[in-house]
């Protein structure tokens, strides 16, 4: 009974992770607290925490004042810019300008525009695109694995689980090659520089991927040793 529970929970966990991670924007994260100019038509500076979260489909930029109330304003922004297929990042950026978002947000968002000399856009977009595709495939594999595990064909379930893991790892590979290939692009906010590093989504995908591979391998090996 306990074993059964464990199985269900593990399986659900894996599926949930694959789905969640796909929509998460925490693949690469960076955070810096700095003094920075804030908005147009004002020369005032604020001190704020600027966060950058790069996901598979876009970036999320957060700006939180420290403290949140400064200049009689609530400084707490969380803006998303997406570059999924079919969406136009440049247009979103133009809209953001129109909207008049705070300077640091615009500054960071601009670094990801297609024509920015940073070249971040193409890299991250492609990597995100293919990683996301891999994760979808992994998700389908997971579905199949579940179906097969509930049928009398356990080995195939094992194989599918293995495939799930492998596709997740492949996705990670895509993501990391792309991110490590980009030339460093300093993100200077005021005096400080924002550095990004791999985020929780990345690590959790890595662990579930490895978990799947291990489980799958175990099942396959078990079947080899003891066919019935």
């Amino acid at each position: 009974r306990l074993f059964w529970m464990l199985r269900v929970v593990t399986s659900l966990f894996i599926g949930a992770v694959i789905l969640a991670v796909n929509f998460s924007s925490e693949w690469s994260v960076g955070q810096v607290s700095t003094n920075t100019s804030y908005k147009a038509f004002s020369s005032q500076w604020i001190s704020a925490n600027v966060g950058l979260q790069i996901g598979l489909g876009g970036v999320n930029i957060t700006l939180t004042g420290t403290p949140v109330q400064q200049l009689n304003e609530t400084i707490d922004y969380n803006e998303e810019f997406t570059w999924r297929l079919g969406e136009n990042y440049a247009e979103e950026y133009a809209n953001a300008l129109e909207k008049g978002l705070p300077d640091p947000v615009l500054y960071l968002a601009e670094k990801f525009t297609p024509h920015s000399p940073c070249g971040l856009h193409g890299q991250y977009r492609l990597a995100g695109h293919y990683t996301s595709a891999m994760l979808w495939v992994a998700f389908l594999c997971w579905l199949l694995a579940n179906v097969m595990l509930s049928m009398p064909v356990l080995v195939y379930g094992g194989h599918m689980l293995l495939a799930t893991g492998l596709f997740q790892l492949l996705g990670l590979l895509f993501f990391s090659t792309a991110t490590s290939l980009t030339p460093p692009c300093p993100l200077r906010l005021g005096a400080a520089t924002l550095h990004t590093h791999r985020g929780p989504a990345y690590w959790i995908t890595l662990t579930t991927g490895l978990l799947c591979v291990l489980l799958g391998l175990a099942m396959v090996v078990a079947h080899r040793m003891q066919p019935h």
Binding site: N35, S37, A40, F41, S42, S43, W45, S47
Partner: peptide, 11 residues
């Protein structure tokens, strides 16, 4: 703390 007292122009 604030080294610049003017508004920075956008490029």
């Amino acid at each position: 703390q604030n080294s610049i007292s003017w508004e920075v122009q956008r490029f």
